[in-house]
Nucleic acid binder design. Structure first.
Lengths: 206, 206
DNA sequence: ACGTAGAACGTACGATGTACGTAAAGTCGC
DNA sequence: GCGACTTTACGTACATCGTACGTTCTACGT
C-alpha cells in the first residue's frame, strides 16, 4: 500500500542519492514501482511533498535538554543538533533551505530556543531577536557551505592557484590568502562563528 | 540589436516585477520582442543568464572606503552596502542566494572584507574565518527574511493569533511572545545581529 | 450479492529548456 | 561590385516536468 510516509521516504532517499534536481514526481513513482498519478492520492502536490520532506527531516532534531548544563552549553547543543541533521541529510537540507518552506523548523525548536534564551536572562523581545540572529547564521552557514562546494567544482585542478594567479597589486589579500580561501573545513568554520555568537550574547546587557 | 546586457536587464526587470518563477527564457524573449532562440546567441544557457543577473546585481555593491573611519565603521558600511542592493533588488537577491551561483560576490568584495579585517588587526586565517561568518549571517538573514514574508502569507487573518492559540502549557514562550514572533522589521532584526557580530569581533584576541 | 469508497492507473495538456537547421544581414578581400 | 564568410535572428522539434481528468480495480459494509 502506498502512503504519504512511504512517498516521503522514497523522495528523501532519491534526493540524497542523486541530488535535488533528480526529485521529480516521475522519479519518486519509479522508486516505488508505482504509476506517477498514484502519488496524488496521498500527496496533493509537489510543493506538499517538499513540505513533507522538510517536516520529516527537521523532525529529527534532537531537542532534549542536558540536565545541569548552563545556557551556553544548551545553546551550543541545540545549534549543533541542527548541524547534525544537516550532516545526515545534506541534500535535503539544501532543498529545505533554498525552497523556502512554510514553518521550516516547526514550533518546538522555536520554543526550545526561547526557553534557552530566557534561562540566559534575556527578556522576551530580546530572546526573539537573538533567536532570529542565530537562525540566520545557521541557515547562511548551510548555504555558504554548499556554495563553497560548488565553487570548488568549478575550479577543478588547483583552486588555490586560481586565486593566487590574480593580480597581486589589485588583490593583495586574496592572493596572499589563496590557500586559506580555498581550504574547506565546514565544521570548524561553523564552530568559529558559533562561538563568536555565543560570546557576544554573553556580553549583552540583561 | 540584442546583447547580453539587454537580456540581463530584461531578465532583472522581469524578476522584480513578477517574481522569480516568472523568469523563463520565453518570458525574457517576449519582454524584448524577440524569438526565444535568439537569446541563445548571446547567452549559452539559462544558468549563464542567472550568473549574469548575479554579477550585474552584485556589481552594484558600493565598495568605497570612508576615509578616517575605524574598522568597525568600515565593516558596518560594507555589510550595509550588501543590504542596500538586497533592498534595491529583493527578488533578484533571492534568486542569487537560493540558486547557488558561482562566486556570488566576486573577488572585489572579498578583498575589501579582508582589508577591513586586516586593519582590525586579525591575521590572515582569522580574517578568512571572520569573513565567512559574516557572509553566512548576511546570506541567512536574507533567506530568513523572505521565509518570514512567505509565512505571514500562509497565516493570513491575524498571524499573531495563530501562535497565541497554541497550547500554552506545551509552548509557553511561543504563545507569550506571539506578537514579537510575528512582528516583522527586517532592518532592525538585521542590525541587531550585525552589532552582535561586530561587538564579538571587538573582543576577539588579536 | 450488490453498491460504494478509495486507491491505482493511463492519457493528455500546457509549460519549460534547448539542440538543430535555416535564412537574412552585415564584413572583408579583391 | 562581388563572392566568401561570419554573425545574428528565427522556427521547428523534442524531452521532461507537474498535474487535471476520467477510468478501472479492489475491498468492504450491508
Amino acid at each position: 500500500m502506498l502512503s504519504k510516509g512511504r512517498i516521503i521516504d522514497a523522495a528523501i532517499a532519491l534526493v540524497e542519492r542523486h541530488g535535488e534536481d533528480a526529485l521529480s514526481m516521475r522519479a519518486v513513482a519509479a522508486e516505488l514501482d508505482v504509476a506517477v498519478m498514484s502519488l496524488y492520492n496521498h500527496v496533493p502536490s509537489k510543493a506538499a511533498l517538499l513540505d513533507g520532506i522538510a517536516h520529516r527531516v527537521m523532525g529529527g532534531l534532537e531537542l532534549d535538554e542536558e540536565a545541569g548544563a548552563d545556557w551556553k552549553a544548551q545553546a551550543r547543543t541545540l545549534i549543533r543538533a541542527f548541524r547534525r541533521v544537516a550532516r545526515d541529510y545534506p541534500a535535503c537540507m539544501n532543498l529545505i533551505v533554498t525552497h523556502s518552506v512554510e514553518l521550516p523548523f516547526g514550533i518546538r525548536p522555536i520554543e526550545r530556543a526561547l526557553v534557552i534564551a530566557a534561562s540566559a536572562g534575556f527578556d522576551g523581545p530580546t530572546s526573539v531577536r537573538v533567536m532570529r540572529a542565530i537562525i540566520a547564521y545557521a541557515l547562511g552557514a548551510q548555504l555558504r557551505e554548499t556554495d563553497m562546494v560548488k565553487m570548488l567544482d568549478y575550479l577543478p585542478a588547483d583552486p588555490a592557484a586560481a586565486f593566487a594567479e590574480l593580480d597581486p597589486v589589485e588583490f593583495p589579500h586574496v592572493t596572499a590568502l589563496a590557500k586559506e580561501l580555498t581550504a574547506h573545513d565546514p565544521e570548524s568554520d561553523f564552530e568559529f562563528g558559533l562561538e563568536l555568537f555565543i560570546g557576544a550574547l554573553d556580553t549583552l546587557p540583561r
